[in-house]
Simulated assay, not measured.
Amino acid sequence: MNVIVELRQYTLHPGARDTLVDLFEREFVTGQEAAGITVGGRFQDLDDPDRFVWLRSFPDMAARARALHAFYGGPVWQAHRERANATMVDSDNVLLLRGPGFAAPDTAGPVVATICHPLDPTAFADHFEQHLRPALTAAGTPAQAVHRSEHAENTFPALPVRTGEDVLLWFTAGKAPRLPDLSTQLKSAPQQLRLTPVQRRQA
């Protein structure tokens, strides 16, 4: 089932990632879930010690607005926002997507998020299904949780999202998959985020 998904990439102050991860796991997972938000995977970027990457999802855009108002206006965020915000340089790198969401199990090894900016989103989606997905499967790196851009108006403008771009992204387990030459299909080279799942903290 496709839902509304946010892929959020936070740039943090040097050395602040563990502080945010501890706070996130202790307070913000259950706090968001209580507000009706499905919290997906939380990841450390293997190539950037000051980046935290995570996903959350909502049934639709109206539910997103209600849930975000409930969480950011509620007691959990109000109690911990100053400490959370103090870890962050930038929290506006957010892709609004439609797809199944993604949450790697706690025991999972590294995963890779591959982000493509197609010249023609419809044509590239067809190319992906007909050619690229079978090639990834044959290479032992099958695509999981494929997402495409959602262009609905941001229903919670207090939190910006990236606009004016189309992406198709997917996740793979293990090392970064080798991709064929996609220069005729894409506006720029694919971005591959090498990620490791955050281990759940105990309360």
Rank of each mutant, 00 (worst) to 15 (best):
A113G: 05
L95G: 07
E153T: 14
G140E: 06
R81L: 08
G101D: 00
G101F: 01
F128N: 01
H131A: 12
T87V: 06
N93K: 09
L159P: 02
G99A: 10
H117D: 07
A158S: 14
E150R: 11
F128D: 01
T155K: 10
F156I: 05
H131R: 13
T87Q: 04
H151Q: 13
L159G: 05
H127T: 08
F102S: 00
V89A: 13
A135I: 07
C116E: 00
A152H: 10
V89P: 05
A84L: 02
V161W: 05
D92K: 08
A113W: 06
M88S: 03
F156H: 12
D120R: 14
Q130F: 11
S91A: 15
P134W: 00
V146Y: 03
P105D: 12
M88L: 06
V161H: 07
A152V: 06
T137I: 11
T87D: 02
V112A: 09
D92F: 04
T137W: 11
M88E: 02
P110T: 00
L136T: 03
A103Q: 07
T141M: 09
A84T: 04
D120E: 12
F128P: 00
A125W: 09
V161A: 11
M88D: 02
I115G: 01
F156M: 07
E153N: 12
P118H: 00
I115F: 06
A103T: 07
A143Y: 01
D90G: 03
F128R: 01
C116T: 13
T137G: 14
H151G: 14
D106N: 13
L132F: 04
T122K: 14
R148E: 10
H80Y: 09
A135K: 10
A125T: 11
F102E: 02
V161K: 03
H131Y: 09
A103C: 10
E82H: 15
A104C: 07
T155E: 11
P105V: 12
P134A: 01
T114D: 09
R98V: 07
T114N: 08
V111P: 03
A79S: 15
T137F: 09
F128K: 03
D92L: 02
V111I: 11
L132D: 00
A138G: 13
E150C: 14
C116F: 06
N154F: 03
Q130V: 10
T114H: 06
A158H: 13
P134R: 01
L95H: 15
G101A: 02
A135L: 08
V146P: 01
A152C: 07
T87H: 04
V89E: 14
A125N: 12
T114W: 05
A158W: 10
D106Y: 11
D92G: 07
D90M: 04
E82A: 15
A86R: 11
S149H: 03
G99K: 06
I115Q: 02
R81N: 12
T137A: 15
P110G: 05
N154Y: 01
E129L: 15
T114V: 14
G109T: 00
D126A: 10
L136H: 07
P118L: 00
E153K: 13
A104F: 04
T87N: 05
P121R: 13
A139I: 10
Q144H: 15
A138P: 03
P160N: 08
H151W: 09
A86D: 08
D90F: 00
T137S: 13
S91V: 09
P160F: 04
V89F: 08
P105Q: 12
L136K: 02
T155D: 10
H80A: 06
